[in-house]
Design a protein around this nucleic acid. Structure first.
Length: 434
RNA sequence: CGGGGCGUAGCGCAGUCUGGUAGCGCGACGGUUUUGGGAACCGUAGGCCGGAGGUUCGAAUCCUCUCGCCCCGACCA
């Protein structure tokens, strides 16, 4: 992408309405535009990041055996009456009426709908287990939306639903998602810690919130420091195992949110921090399958009400949470896997023939190599270019200027560390693509 | 929903108390000089002062109503 043509409305000053750093930086970096309280349009840069995050979620869901589908945002109130939640849900649910005065709603979640779809088609235990997901916009009419995308009203969520014949199967499905979530966040370059969550009336120990540590987090969390040293991607036993050992290892360390924290049972040496919830997994048995009649015929010919679980990742919130966890005073520092561009080629002097020639050549080579590259070919002053690049947080900045070219070198800067080195063009290319 | 605050140019703000023909900085546009960390100078454009009523000779400013947004609390990916 050429910056001279890219729709990237960056701001020098921080808009007054933004209080938290992720909101401020997303506005300044030209990623989003608020259209109503808690509702945002995603501009090209933001949309690129959102899609990268969604794609990692998608790949890990697929890898864990879940299947992608897409359910609508608008649902019928009828479905929710079957589960009893239409009355129970309260004002967070946006209720609307169509032209025939039929009661509809903008879905805050999809348990009812997926259960309805499931029961229509699945009749035999032989069809189990099943795990279905979609990545779709949700709406929850929060009393007070705030913190930009951290607590919006409309948000993009990956939600999936597992269906099993028995509790043991449901627990295995749960452990698979537990692993999938750890892998998902690890791949995004962030440390999300699973913390025991309230299971409400269901009871048991099968609900975890996945929390990212960040100073601006909404809730107080407590965990053992050793958590931060675990390497999930290295520990991954694969989905063919029963995952019991893995699950045991990753739930043995203490980690709890404020609500679940119990100083009496907690170890003495505890890390206290602020946390942002980015995912939540939940086993809930027959809470929906029973009232909605999701029943299959078991091996013995008798009907079995299926065991269900649901699993959510706040995809749009993750984007904000990553910024909360990874920024400095100059702007965003994207972890490589979710960065909107891998490298920015900064032509320091756009009207200099040699600078332009080398920049274009580097740009073309990187594109040919399949690298997501942004070329700053604007006729701006160097300071403005550097400031923009730091602001939008591209992991590598490859600066091409007349001073360096005279000596046959370009400057390669790593956004995360600020480390700069002068290299011949080919060496810089190798470093960026390697 | 309770409590607090704010709506004036694209963005950040002053002006409101004490009514008198709307201003500053940044940004945009044109020009000249510049060019390795958000340049300098000259010039230009841009505002029903959120909206509707009212008071007044006269309202951004006072009164009433309304809409929107932000912050603090109870809810949540």
């Amino acid at each position: 992408m050429r910056m001279s043509q890219f729709f990237l409305p960056t701001l020098k000053e921080t808009p007054a309405e933004a209080q938290v750093v992720s909101h401020q930086l997303m506005l300044r970096a030209g990623m989003i535009r608020q259209t109503s309280a808690g509702i945002y349009a995603w501009l090209p840069l933001g949309w690129k990041v959102l899609q990268k995050v969604a794609q990692i979620v998608r790949e890990e869901q697929d890898r864990a055996g879940a299947q992608e589908m897409l359910m609508p945002t608008i649902q019928s109130a009828e479905l929710w009456r079957q589960s009893g939640r239409y009355e129970a849900y309260g004002k967070e649910m946006l209720r609307i009426k169509d032209r025939h005065d039929r009661e509809m709603l903008y879905g805050p979640t999809n348990e009812e709908m997926i259960t309805d779809i499931f029961k229509t088609f699945v009749r035999s235990y032989k069809d189990l287990p099943k795990n279905l997901y979609h990545i779709q916009w949700k709406f929850r009419d929060e009393i007070r939306p705030r913190f930009g995308l951290m607590r919006g009203r409309e948000f993009l969520m990956k939600d999936n639903y597992s269906f099993d014949l028995d509790v043991e199967g449901a627990k295995l499905s749960y452990r698979k998602m537990f692993l999938a979530y750890l892998r998902t966040f690890a791949r995004m370059g962030i440390k999300a810690i699973p913390m025991r969550a309230d299971t409400g009336p269901i009871g048991g120990d099968l609900s975890h919130e996945f929390i990212i540590l960040a100073e601006t987090g909404e809730s107080q969390v407590f965990c053992e420091k050793r958590w931060l040293d675990l390497d999930v991607l290295a520990d991954d036993p694969g989905y063919d195992s029963d995952l019991k050992d893995f699950f045991a290892k990753y739930t043995s360390l203490y980690a709890a949110t404020e609500e679940m924290h119990d100083a009496a049972t907690a170890p003495a040496e505890l890390e206290t921090a602020r946390g942002i919830e980015v995912g939540h997994i939940f086993y809930f048995g027959t809470k929906y399958s029973a009232p909605m009649g999701a029943v299959v015929t078991g091996p013995d010919g008798n009907p079995v009400t299926v065991e269900m679980g649901s699993y959510g990742i706040g995809v749009s919130r993750v984007v904000a949470a990553i910024i909360e966890a990874s920024h400095d005073s100059n702007g965003i520092i994207w972890p490589d896997p979710v960065a909107p561009f891998h490298v920015a080629v900064v032509n320091l002097k756009a009207d200099d023939a040699e600078c332009a020639r080398v920049s274009e050549e580097v740009y073309a080579k990187l594109q040919a190599a399949g690298v997501d590259v942004l070329l700053d070919d604007r006729n701006e002053r160097p300071g403005a270019k550097f400031a923009d690049m730091d602001l939008i947080g591209i992991p590598w900045q490859l600066t091409i200027g007349p001073r360096g070219l005279k000596n046959g070198v370009v400057e390669l800067k790593r956004r995360a560390t600020g480390e700069k080195q002068e290299l011949p063009v080919e060496a810089a290319l190798a470093k960026v693509t390697g």
